[in-house]
Design a protein around this nucleic acid. Structure first.
Length: 111
DNA sequence: CCCGTGACCGACT
DNA sequence: CAGTCGGCCACGG
């Protein structure tokens, strides 16, 4: 369970949409982040950012698939407060700059 | 097939 | 600047 192929194999029972979401997220490099909207665009479903969020919420491959590296467009972390705080810590531990509980959405860290 | 749900977004009070 | 609102969408019941 390390390569992208492993991820796809594990998700064999999931929909193509879900596979695409997890694979795209799997590609986000350490120390960087992406947004629900960008992931949606990447997989060819520009208006499905909401569905992307739902999918990541049920991430069956945590922590193989780094879902915590996906944030809202404004750099904030959604979801339940406690869980959101954990994701924020993880992101900060990877060296991503934050302020006021939000990621500083600079072009050098947002993929 | 319709309906509710939700880790969203942008525009508009 | 904090809320609200309508639009969008995959998924499960």
């Amino acid at each position: 369970m390390r390569t992208e192929q492993d991820v796809i194999r594990y998700l064999s029972d999931y929909s193509d949409f879900e596979k695409a979401v997890y694979v795209a997220t799997f590609r986000i490099p350490y120390g960087k982040v992406s947004t629900y909207q960008k992931i949606a665009r990447k997989i060819g479903e520009p208006d499905a950012m909401r569905a992307v969020a739902n999918t990541l919420h049920n991430n069956p491959l945590y922590p193989i698939v780094p879902c915590w590296r996906v944030v809202r467009s404004d750099g904030g972390f959604g979801g339940e407060a406690k869980a959101a705080a954990e994701r924020r810590e993880r992101v900060e531990n990877e060296g991503v700059p934050t302020a006021d509980g939000k990621v500083l959405m600079t072009d050098d860290i947002v993929v």
